[in-house]
Design a protein around this nucleic acid. Structure first.
Lengths: 228, 228
DNA sequence: CCGGAATGTCACAGAACTGTCACAAATCAC
DNA sequence: GTGATTTGTGACAGTTCTGTGACATTCCGG
């Protein structure tokens, strides 16, 4: 499914601009202007990338960055920092602290989009078009095709996104809410049980009789896809 | 053989930086600071891509670009232009003149490399030979001919461009908007459903009864042409 | 100026997909 | 065991998407 991005920016106008542009590109976007809250949100939704203004209130960006890098759970999430023109020193310090790239304000939205895309490509090739395969299941996002054991499978749009979402997060238990956020989008208002139904449809589509079901139900928690 | 790239840049330091980076990636690089010379070199060595500074002396980049696009021999070589920050107008004019992408100075070498790679990846299929063939379909851009299984087919202009667009991008899902941009042109204002109609006409034209339809409909996403 | 070919839109029908529900089956807490 | 939760499953009605034929218009060669 589409990558989720967390925007940490306390200038409301700029924040809206970013959100709008990123959404238009198909990313899932959440935002906050507060560093402390940002750290919580990262843990909660595990975004695929973070856009972080260096000069937010309360907690300086660099501190947020440092703390994200310290936690093993979040250490690998790519961070794109926004700095004011001329703050050369900040930039260097930022990159040393663990930011992956920077953009100087003011910037063109298109450039920013390109940077974000580049970051994602680097951190998670699977999100930008490379094949995912998984035991005997093969999913190619570019051609939108799925095969199992060489045989081509037909999946509907939602089943495809769902399978992709799982294959990008192997061996992790995913709650129904996480799945809804990731596959349907943050602001969808859909019954959690609907996930069950689509899981069933996905299972039916990918499991030929006699084959192992790669999707494991975790009672009272959600579902997970196992590499066997 | 590795792709050859021509760098047109009159700032010696920047030119060296580019050359060094591109060489390190395995590209063959030649460079010049003069627009007129650039045109000669293009004819001489037929590079696979051109990196073109918009503000070189003698001949403005836009003029070089225009002249390259006018000559059928060089019209399809991808051009990446370098612009100064904030020259939004130049950028737009550049893209309209036929540049394929742009990078704003100052830029990170890494970003530039990514862009160049993307450009080459996009243009490659058409570079691999003048006529494209594909399963049993054969398309010759020069003579505007299409054959399937040896038998000559008659396609209208739009159908021809459409088929070519697909054959240059095999195994990829192409959205209706992408197809419109690629076949009709970025600034056309045409209903997305029109693509469906032309797809149908194309299918009718290339598929004899009993033959496999190489065009796959991907619901809620677009169309793709499959090999095999 | 004429006639055929090509093009862009539309409307409609059929196909595919979706979200919910109700009930059955499985699992859990005691 | 027994009742309470939680998940699997089939059905279904509504919605969205695509295929297709028709049509008015434009383009172009003669």
């Amino acid at each position: 499914m589409n990558p989720d991005i967390l925007v940490v920016e306390d200038d409301t106008a700029l924040c809206d601009l970013l959100t709008w542009n990123l959404s238009a590109e198909g990313y899932g976007v959440r935002s906050t202007g507060d560093g402390e809250e940002a750290l919580l949100m990262v843990r909660e939704q595990a975004p695929d990338a973070i856009i972080l203004d260096w000069l937010i209130e309360q907690v300086p960006g660099i501190e947020v960055c440092r703390r994200l890098r310290k936690d093993k759970e979040t250490a690998r999430i790519p961070i794109l920092m926004l700095t004011a023109r001329g703050e050369e020193e900040d930039r260097i310090r930022g990159l040393k602290t663990g930011a992956d790239d920077y953009v100087t304000k003011p910037f063109s939205p298109r450039e920013l989009m390109a940077r974000v895309e580049a970051l994602l490509r680097r951190s998670r090739p699977s999100l930008t078009g490379d094949n995912l395969n998984f035991a005997d299941i093969e999913l190619d996002p570019a051609s939108h095709r799925v095969r199992r054991g060489g045989e081509s499978l037909h999946l509907g749009p939602t089943e495809f996104k769902l399978l992709r979402y799982f294959m990008e997060r192997p061996n992790r238990v995913l709650s129904r809410q996480q799945i809804l956020d990731g596959v349907w989008g943050m602001d969808s208002d859909i019954d959690e049980r609907t996930v069950d139904v689509h899981i069933r449809r996905l299972r039916k589509a990918i499991n030929r009789p006699g084959e192992r079901d790669p999707i494991r139900t975790v009672r009272a928690a959600g579902y997970a896809m196992d590499v066997s």
